[in-house]
């Protein structure tokens, strides 16, 4: 059987990321902030806190909480996105918060909240991954005590090919076995998966290949995160 997916629409290699943009400290008012972009997918994140949590009934006397807010700006997609929370953004807020909470030392300030705001400026698939990457950088920059970093990437299976960093056109692939899109978030040191969402179908052994591809890609992304946190402005998009 020959594959229907032989070349990626944007001519990337199967394991190649889109040009990355990464920068920290973009929002002076926030305790920590960052921008992260996979090509045309641009996300910014701002972190505020730890600060007192109100309403008080949400407080946890043993630990602080992370309150994550993910939203797409109206102009981030071709057809205007209605602003405000919706079912999709609420779900992504929750998974992004959980993906980050597992590395943060929340027991340090009980009864407090760390606000993480993720905004998508421009979307071309993998928005949650770009958002989590930006949020992890913003958290680190905000001086939050955390064990390690989190990097996130989407891995796709287009017909029978495993590809890294999926774009919208690939997400909509319908020929052959169709498209599968898996969003991974992985910790930088212990390589643990803190978030995984699978959309579509995949065979067990192919899934293990996808995990391996995610690990390799997350290591590359982590490298960008380190460089951006150390003050570098990374912009591979203009060449």
């Amino acid at each position: 059987m020959t594959s229907t997916f032989t070349k990626r629409p944007d001519k990337r290699k199967f394991d190649e990321l889109r040009p990355i943009k990464a920068e920290t400290g973009i929002i002076p008012n926030a305790d920590g902030s960052a921008l992260f972009a996979f090509g045309e997918t641009v996300a910014i994140a701002a972190v505020y806190g730890p600060k007192p949590l109100h309403p008080a009934h949400m407080q946890d006397p043993e630990r602080g909480i992370i309150r994550c807010n993910y939203n797409m700006l109206p102009f981030s997609v071709t057809e205007r996105a209605k602003p405000g929370p919706n079912r999709r953004s609420k779900e992504i807020s929750m998974v992004a918060g959980n993906a980050l909470a597992s590395v943060v030392d929340l027991a340090r300030f009980p009864g407090t909240v760390i606000d993480v705001e993720i905004l998508i400026l421009q979307a071309n698939a993998s928005t949650r991954c770009a958002g989590i990457n930006a949020a992890a950088m913003a958290l680190a920059q905000a001086g939050v005590v955390m064990k390690e970093m989190v990097s996130s990437v989407s891995i796709g299976k287009m017909d029978d090919k495993i590809v890294t960093d999926v774009i919208k056109e690939e997400e909509d692939w319908e020929e052959g076995e169709g498209a599968t899109d898996i969003a991974f978030s992985m910790t930088s040191r212990t390589k643990q998966i803190t978030h995984l969402q699978l959309d579509g179908i995949i065979q067990t052994q192919r899934f293990m290949e996808a995990v391996e591809a995610a690990r390799v890609a997350c290591e590359k992304i982590h490298d960008y995160q380190i460089r951006a946190l150390k003050g570098e402005k990374i912009d591979e998009t203009k060449k």
Partner: peptide, 24 residues
């Protein structure tokens, strides 16, 4: 010895510590 926080790492004698440069 692994860092738990963003900041300036300082090795003085045998002790390694991090001086915070950001945060509340």
């Amino acid at each position: 010895v692994v860092s738990n926080r963003f900041g300036l790492a300082e090795v003085s004698g045998r002790v390694v510590k991090i001086i915070p440069i950001s945060g509340v």
